[in-house]
Amino acid sequence: MTLDRATPMVKFAGVTKRYGRLTVIDGLDFAIAHGEKVALIGPSGSGKTTVLRMLMTLERIDGGVIWVEGEPLTHVERGGRLVPADARHLRRVRGKIGMVFQHFNLFPHMTALKNCMEAPMTVLGLPKHQAAERAAELLDMVGLAGKKNHYPSQLSGGQQQRVAIARALAMRPKVMLFDEVTSALDPELVGEVLNVIRKLGAEHDLTMLMVTHQMGFAKEFADRIAFFHRGKIEEEGKPEEFFGNPKNERTRQFLRAVLDAV
């Protein structure tokens, strides 16, 4: 398999997800290029968070295939057909993806540093001193060098979320998923988290997918906006185009509603 930058980093091909009789993602076709930053927006229940969760393998998909760097995520090719993959394949491909959650999900019984060392040591097999070094560097990058030995409960929401970003980065993912990472924060703490994401975007060749309600940030940060409605991408485009001249009536309605609310 030859890989070049023309191969999408992530590609959803006809992906469907149902909860019982409710179809939350309906035959999604969606490709994200290497290093591209895409913001997923849309009303709640439109399926945007499910897209991230399927890619992180937190949700099983009911149809279609997700490709990561030209390789199927939950399938393997055998005899020209795609069959469900085993846990080993899943873990290998999943290693390229990192995720930051709305509610941080830090490990409460570990310090900030230990939170960032756990996976590199147990999954990548890094020796302790090396994992500690990497964790300290990343905590420094997110502005928390002085909080290394603090437990999550001793940190503010914004600080916890920055630890969570450092923890995900410690696994050196190629794709980072941000699931409403500022939604659970007090308003005055949103900025510090967005600044870290900005810095990441500027300094690293990371592909980023973010579900967000911060329209201002999406507009300034993303290369592309995808508007979800009822499990489908209703409209997508470059931020200037998308926000300046939305073509779809539903998009216009949604933007009017969220921009009015601010």
Binding site: R94, N105, L106, F107, E118, V123, A168
Partner: peptide, 21 residues
């Protein structure tokens, strides 16, 4: 649930997830 999900997102094995998390 978030603890399990974070463990998956960090690619921890099931064994490590139980033992350490």
């Amino acid at each position: 649930r978030g603890q399990w999900e974070a463990s998956i997102a960090l690619n921890l094995s099931l064994y490590t997830t139980f033992k350490d998390i």
